[in-house]
Design a protein around this nucleic acid. Structure first.
Lengths: 352, 352
DNA sequence: TCGATTTGTGAAATGGGTTTCATTATGGCT
DNA sequence: AGCCATAATGAAACCCATTTCACAAATCGA
């Protein structure tokens, strides 16, 4: 069954393809009877114009590439969901590019993440996407290898690229990010307001911008309150539930333990909750815990997590809007910052 | 900055575009020096062939459409992750099509889901995808409106469509699904093996195939053990944590309450856990809970969920492999069934 | 009534590749 | 030396739309 083309329609309607195109796109007046004849044929054959051919001449595809590290990390679906909503409204379809995903042994493949980002960048260019959104991976690095940044800048000359929730230092790449430092301050100030003085931080990766900024927020809030930051209570390098459990267990072992833990994300907080439970420590009565991100799972735990909402969906939506403007050639601010909000639930309480 | 094309390369290399194309695709022998000259130019200009143009002639795009209801439901990222891994290996890129996603008010839009499926189907056709994977939505309906099925069959004539984890009745559409009935039997037999006789089921939607099949598994396991199914202990219409909490609360109110609850998914089970906690009932000592799906969150709760693993990632991988074969025109079984496994963790114990 | 617009339409060029067909050069073999 | 298979390459057609340009017909304004 050959697919029907504008030529088939044109022939049967006794017009030229130009006219068919005109009714398809409403780009010029067409006599009423002619139009009706053509429309009827389009219906009859369920004709759909070939988007490839169309894009080829129009030089726009209406597609975006969305590069993220790991869709099974619940933070990203949140962002993506907001992005999806807005992108669809604006008429875009998008390629999802997961730079980690899972192999046959259900292992996540972190090792060649940056390499895969490069591959996708290149692939997306070939596919002629109108723009690219990137989150995580190299975008999060505080000191990325120069070639990683350079490559991005090179690509950005050819197609609009928008970086989400991260910041390659010293570049002129467009970004929309949550204000991580502010978010951390919110969380820590909340704890301090509850009377906590012995506050630990866990999680994150020291080489990541986000982590550094949240840590900076933690430090500034502590300093402002005249509280010391104890080195042994700052445990980094990890973002998973398992790591959270491990870090918290370590903190809770000694008798001289913190009364509150600020976690770099909700997954860690969930792990901390487990560790506390295992150690027979009651949350929030004996220990307060604050998460970060406000993923849906933050409300699944018992007790529900107090956390910092990045308003992930809003970030996704803003990304779509901004990228659309960039594609249209409109000016957009180089950097857009979104303010996180504290969501107080059940894991924080007055200091014991 | 005009993008460079094969013509540019050809001109500068003093060859015809045909030759350039030949070195690009290795489709015919090219003299060594000529090849080197061309390769050098490709490097020099960082030339990338335009995938649109290529696909236009080749009549294949190397892209797949993946339609799912809601990426923020953690079950789908699992499936997608497996699919992503395998699809990438096979050389495909994919459009992600979320038929629900979230609007400005962070509400999920369930109302026009089927309409949106239709829109996406049509859009994907225009974009000339090589194949389509569909999960959830109408695929889950036990009695879909005839036009929903018909539309799908119509599209399936033009492009390979693979249905995941569902079954439109009476159609000749390809499917790969977990054996839902078997999974439910596994769960319930486990409970019965622990001595439970008073077992309730919660969740699912009665109009969905999956729910019906799991319910059938529940019934058959109960029947086999000579246990009665109490109508008031079968609570359906819902799949969320909130619903799980509500259903469980209802079950646990009376003094004559079940000793075990089989939940139609893990989200419900997490909700049930919360309800039990609120009611001061200890899990698993006083109440056993079994979930379904084995999403990552099943290990986040305290205690960790005993659940039925659908091996979601494997389903995703199998989907990619199968669709690839369909695209290649190879024969594939109309229906592939995958066997779930029981994962025993901490929410089930001997009957009190 | 006549020039100026506007309407309506087609032929042909265009976008950027791949592929077929034809042709010449080259190497291997008897 | 003669023949055939293979290597190497180019011209042109093709994929399927959109768009430009040109032109005829219809409408408008003074």
């Amino acid at each position: 069954m050959r697919t029907v083309t504008v030529y088939d329609i044109a022939r049967e309607a006794n017009v030229s393809v130009a006219t068919v195109s005109r009714v398809l796109n409403n780009t010029a007046p067409v006599k009423k009877e002619t139009r009706e004849r053509i429309v009827a044929l389009i219906r009859k054959y369920q004709f759909q114009p070939n988007a490839l051919a169309r894009s080829l001449t129009r030089k726009e595809t209406g597609t975006i590439g969305f590069i993220l590290p790991d869709i099974t990390n619940p933070f990203f679906p949140e962002v993506l969901s907001g992005f999806d909503y807005e992108a669809r409204k604006l008429g875009y379809t998008y390629f999802l590019c997961d730079t980690i995903s899972t192999n046959e042994e259900n292992e996540r493949l972190y090792d060649r993440q940056y390499e895969r980002e490069s591959q996708y960048l290149s692939l997306l260019m070939e596919k002629q996407v109108d723009g690219i959104v990137m989150i995580g991976g190299r975008v999060d690095l505080a000191k990325p290898a120069p070639e990683l940044t350079q490559e991005l800048e090179e690509f950005a000359k050819r197609v609009p690229i928008l970086l989400l929730n991260g910041s390659l230092p010293k570049t002129k790449l467009n970004r929309v990010s949550a204000d991580q430092k502010f978010g951390a301050e919110l969380a820590v100030q909340h704890l301090i307001g509850l009377g906590h003085r012995d506050i630990a931080v866990i999680g994150g990766y020291s080489k990541m911008t986000n982590t550094q900024q949240r840590l900076a927020g933690f430090r500034s809030a502590m300093k402002e309150a005249g509280l010391p930051v104890r080195k042994e209570w700052v445990l980094t390098e990890g973002f998973s539930v398992a790591k959270g459990e491990e870090f918290a267990a370590q903190l809770l072992r000694g008798k001289n333990r913190p009364t509150a833990i600020f976690c770099m994300n909700d997954l860690l907080a969930i792990g901390a909750l487990k560790a506390a439970h295992r150690a027979g420590i009651e949350v929030p009565k004996q220990l307060s815990i604050v998460g970060y991100d406000d993923i849906p799972q933050a409300t699944y735990s018992i007790p529900e997590l107090t956390t910092v909402s990045l308003m992930s969906q809003e970030i996704g939506r803003q990304a779509a809007r901004t990228l659309d403007k960039m594609i249209a050639g409109k000016k957009v601010p180089l950097f857009q910052s979104m303010m996180p909000e504290l969501v107080i639930r059940e894991t924080t309480a007055q200091v014991p």
